[in-house]
Each structure stands twice: as C-alpha cells, then as structure tokens.
Amino acid sequence: MFDRLICQCPICAAYDEELDELDLDTVRRVERDGWAVIMVPEDEDGPGWAFTVGLWHTFRSPEAAMFGLDVEVMRRCLNTLADRVAAGHLMVDGQERDDVIRNYPVVTRAVDPSWYRSLFGVALRLYRRPPLSFMEVVWPDRAGLFPWDADATPRLRDLQPSLWLPRDDHPPGPWTKLP
C-alpha cells in the first residue's frame, strides 16, 4: 500500500504527533486497508453518518460520506464503494452508481467545504489541510426518488443533508444545528 517511513503526507506525518486512540486506530486502518470508515451514530440531536478517511491518501480519490441510515449499513456501503474506488472506479460529482446499495442507485455529490469542520473532524485532524475533498453518497427512498425529487418521501430530506449547498444556504434542520 504505502510506506509511512518514507511518505511525508499529513496522515503518515501524523505518527510524529500525539494522537488520541481514535486517530491512531484510523491511521492504522488506513495503513493496513487503504482507508477507514468513521461512524457517528444517531442520537437525540439527529441522524447518524459515516465517512471515509484514506481514499485521498491512498488513491487520490475524494473521501465519501453517507447520512441517515444505520451506521453499520453505511459502513458496509462505504467499504463497498471504497473497494470500487480501489479497483479504479473513481467518484465523480453527479454520478449515478449502482455498485453501492443492492437494487438501488446512489448519486455522488461534491460536498461544499463549508461543511467539513462540522462533519469530518477526524479527517481534518489527520490530513491537517486540503487538498482533500468529500463526496456525499445520496440514497433514494423505496420508490427510487432522491431528496431533490418533488415526490420523494419528506423524511428523506431530514435524514440526508444537501451538502452540495453551502452551509449558509441549506434549509434549517438537524444538520444546520451542528457546530
């Protein structure tokens, strides 16, 4: 995969700093597998989410994030997507993909950087600086409609933020309440 002793990227260089156990575990998983999936479970404040760390480091691909499903389901979906990225099937903004969730397409959307600090702190700590980017992996309702479709299930919009919009332009909801 890569040799952290000769690599000078921010993730590898982070070994030289004091890291908490979560960060150390993440770096080890990136070193072993090429990426890690960070899971933030649902709580009283809102839906859960999950995101990758390491896709940029290992494959120069945007990181991926999913929202609103069970965190274990999102972990499996993101690992499936990361396997596809590792095989050369990179993510593109606005791309519909049928290789993430069985029997349902997803759409990848570029995340506006105004969301990074609220949602992807572990990645920011380890990378320490861009050029990393994130793609939101948006899933449809049971009818195959996405949050932006007029007839989509209204709850779908609460479960998944529209991160392609700048944070200040996003409709109020659980995602805009995050610090």
Score class of each variant (00 low, 15 high):
P171R: 11
L159R: 01
R142I: 00
P174T: 10
P62H: 08
P62C: 11
L159D: 02
Y15G: 14
F120N: 00
D112M: 02
F59C: 14
V137T: 07
A86T: 12
G121W: 04
M39P: 02
Y15S: 06
S114W: 01
A13H: 07
A123R: 02
S162G: 07
L132K: 01
G48R: 07
T52I: 14
V137C: 10
A110W: 01
W164D: 04
D112F: 02
G94V: 12
Y116F: 09
V138H: 03
V107Q: 05
C77E: 13
E63H: 08
L22P: 05
F120Q: 05
Y116H: 10
T153I: 00
R155K: 12
C12D: 11
C77P: 11
C9T: 09
P161I: 02
T108I: 05
W49F: 13
N103W: 01
Y15K: 05
D98A: 13
D25N: 12
G48I: 08
V53E: 08
L78Q: 13
A152T: 04
V27S: 04
M74N: 13
L145R: 02
L78W: 09
D169I: 00
R125G: 08
F120V: 06
W175S: 03
S118N: 10
R29S: 14
L126K: 01
G94Q: 07
G68N: 08
D169T: 06
Y15E: 13
H170N: 03
W139H: 11
G173F: 13
W115K: 07
R117M: 06
V27N: 08
P147A: 14
P166R: 09
D141T: 00
E96L: 06
W139M: 01
P47Y: 10
L178R: 15
R142E: 01
D151G: 12
Y127L: 02
V71Y: 12
V53F: 07
D20G: 12
A14L: 07
S133H: 06
P166A: 05
L124S: 04
D33I: 09
L126A: 03
E21G: 07
G46D: 06
P10N: 14
A87W: 12
F51T: 03
F120L: 11
E17F: 10
R29Y: 08
S133A: 13
W175C: 07
Q8E: 15
A36R: 01
W56E: 00
Y116L: 05
L145V: 01
V40W: 06
E21M: 10
G68V: 09
D20T: 13
R128C: 02
D70F: 12
T108H: 03
W49Q: 03
L55W: 02
C12P: 10
A82H: 08
M66Y: 08
T108E: 05
Q8R: 15
L126D: 00
C12G: 10
A82S: 15
L19T: 04
H170M: 04
V138G: 01
